[in-house]
């Protein structure tokens, strides 16, 4: 479990970092917190020839909150999110979800951009991004572009990023005051990858009914996705026992998780329903 030999660079500017990535035929990798990439290198699953350390790129840091929403710099660490008291109102779903990321030590190192680029199917940040229709800003040799979260995750550990592109920012739309949310996940041990996870929100209209429901799941497919069938059940309804029961059934039916060493597919389907139930209850509470 020792890493193969690789080159290391620590550029001063984003342009320089992109140029380094572009010059290595797809064999270079950016590194931020290293919480996913380094274990993969130790197992020799990933064998980049060059690591481009992003730590000096100050423009990738910082959490910016405005009326447009929350902008998370790619180098924002989970610890930064947990320490930012503004997020309790500016984006409570994000704040709740990030509490579930791995363990203390990992939260001190892991970054938003790293998690998005790694694209583990059970990761919380990609789940929040998909659920909230986030945009991912990236920069490559041909300039900058933004990618919708729904188009960003292509499969397990696979994204729409080109080899020369670096995530610069994740933009979460603004969080209105009438929004209700819930986040639930369940893992074998606290901090393990979730066997299923649910992030959801809806907006309460003047009549007390749910609108604009967004229900996302993690850990039950090869990438996070929204469950349109569950959203349809919730939209236009009061979130009461009857609505919740329909949502649970719709959620279990909507996911096709695999069997793995930690849980069976049947269990995961039922678990997803249970977590939707609990997330809706906490949203409505």
């Amino acid at each position: 479990m020792k890493m193969p030999a690789f080159e290391y660079a620590c550029p001063e500017t984003l342009a320089e970092a992109v140029a380094l990535l572009a010059s290595h035929d797809g064999e270079a990798k950016p590194i931020a917190g290293g919480q996913s990439l380094l274990p993969m290198m130790a197992f020799r699953v990933a064998q980049p020839t060059l690591l481009v350390d992003l730590r000096k790129l100050a423009e990738l840091r910082g959490i910016r909150i405005s009326s447009d929403g929350v902008r998370l710099g790619a180098l924002v660490r989970w610890r930064d999110i947990q320490d930012d008291a503004r997020l309790a109102t500016a984006h409570p779903l994000l704040a709740d979800a990030i509490k579930h990321v791995a363990h203390y030590q990992v939260r001190n190192r892991g970054t938003v951009g790293g998690s998005m680029a790694h694209a583990d199917p059970a990761s919380e940040m990609p789940g929040v991004a998909v659920t909230c229709d986030a945009e991912i800003a990236v920069r490559g040799k041909s300039g900058t572009r933004t990618i919708k979260a729904a188009d960003f995750f292509l499969g397990a550990l696979t994204t729409a990023l080109a080899p020369d592109e670096i995530i610069t920012e994740v933009r979460l739309p603004a969080w209105p005051a009438n929004r209700r949310h819930g986040f639930q996940e369940f893992a074998r041990r606290r901090g393990d990858f979730a066997m299923s996870g649910v992030a959801l929100f809806y907006d309460l209209d003047a009549g007390g009914k749910a609108a604009n429901a967004h229900v996302g799941v993690i850990g039950v497919g090869d990438h996070p996705k929204r469950l349109a069938a569950v959203e349809a059940v919730v939209n236009g309804q009061t979130v009461d026992e009857a609505t919740i029961a329909k949502a649970v059934a719709a959620a279990s039916a909507a996911v096709e998780p695999p069997d793995d060493i930690h849980a069976s597919a049947a269990y995961r389907k039922a678990l997803t329903g249970t977590l939707v139930e609990r997330a809706l209850r906490s949203a409505a509470a």
Partner: peptide
């Protein structure tokens, strides 16, 4: 006694 096993027994 995994979660899957206990859940299956309940089912």
């Amino acid at each position: 006694l995994t979660p899957t096993y206990i859940w299956e027994l309940v089912q």
